[in-house]
Design a protein around this nucleic acid. Structure first.
Lengths: 197, 197
DNA sequence: CTGAAAAGTTACCGATCTGTACCGCACGTT
DNA sequence: AACGTGCGGTACAGATCGGTAACTTTTCAG
């Protein structure tokens, strides 16, 4: 994903990706890696090999592109979540552990740059920013799903534990930007299990 | 802190705050509330009632001002921490609870905008940015202090628990940007106590 | 073969960004 | 009264920001 795509005039060939797809793919990488404010529209244009006019034909503003970026990240996040959880459909505890282990693995990757949704909430002070709406929805959904899993485990107060679990996971994600503990996976799973008692 | 300070020519009266102090006070508020990237140098200049020339006489660049902002936040954070912990010098468990309660209280405030250090880590992709160095040091120091407290409580693996506790606290701070649970304080203290077992 | 759809080219706009040069003014000290 | 220090005023430079207008080129479907 380092190379600069080469522009091509005219409508896209059937085999080619549309301008929208190329823009979104580039924004998905750059907005995450370099930050949203740091990444200018011109950079997205240059790196995606799409003309600026095309970008503004597809997205009415940078904010709209940011919202699309957030939505795309949201989509792929739940896709990952579902794939992971479904491998343990019959065992909620194993599903939870798999989610936590998977999260730890993501955080440990060298290109890890934090949780895109928390990053959006940090980068934009306005709580009504289109990107932040997606971010908030994502976090609420995560809490809800955790409550489902936790309820299946028969803990006393699933809502509270889910809230605590969400805090822990968000904490792991954000702490991972600053410094990743050597045995993050074990620490994270262990902490989560203690929250279940 | 909403009013715009009025500029005054010449050297400051003995009673007046220096240009440096006024700049830092303004940056301390604006960088936190509106974000660092969103806040331009011109805005800091205007709001502090200091001339732009003065700002660049005191700070060589915006990055240096950001570093000073971070250092100031770090200073006041540990001041708060020490004041809180010292009220329970003889009781580490009570000290920990007080810190967590205090944190929850901070997070619940309407002007809360997240942890300034985590925000810096998010806003600046470069891990060697002067502001991020302060941020990283702050988080390492927090983990160390938590390890001290936790060790006094006689838990089995204080280093691990401290790391988990730091994750939890960072998680509370960052989750607080998105949505603050109604009974955050109880949830936080309860979660921390469960981590101690 | 034709035409609509989807894209690229060029050139630009006004605003805002960090940062600088030069000069004038007021206070505290001696 | 004189002077150094700290500061404000004005003006501007150069880059980058998000965003737009008018026009050309390519592909695909009919």
């Amino acid at each position: 994903m380092e190379e600069v795509a080469t522009p091509r005039r005219g409508a896209p060939r059937k085999t080619d990706a549309s301008a929208r797809e190329r823009i979104l793919a580039t924004a998905n990488e750059l907005f995450y890696r370099e930050g949203v404010h740091t990444t200018g529209v011109d950079t997205v244009v240059e790196r995606s090999g799409v003309s600026k006019t095309s970008l503004y034909r597809v997205f009415r503003s940078k904010d709209e592109l940011i919202a699309a970026f957030a939505t795309e990240r949201d989509r792929s996040f739940w896709s990952w979540w579902d794939r992971t959880a479904k491998r343990h459909a019959d065992d909620p505890r194993a599903a939870l552990e798999a989610l936590l282990s998977g999260l730890a693995k993501l955080i440990g990757r060298p290109d890890y740059r934090g949780c895109p949704f928390l990053n959006l909430a940090t980068e934009f002070p306005d709580p009504d920013h289109p990107g932040r709406l997606v971010a908030r929805a994502n976090k609420e959904e995560m809490r809800t799903r955790l409550a489902d899993i936790v309820a299946q485990l028969g803990v006393a107060d699933p809502e509270r534990v889910a809230s605590q679990m969400a805090m822990l996971m968000n904490g792991a994600m954000v702490t991972g930007i600053v410094a990743v503990p050597a045995d993050l996976k074990d620490e994270l799973v262990d902490a989560a299990m203690k929250l279940l008692t």
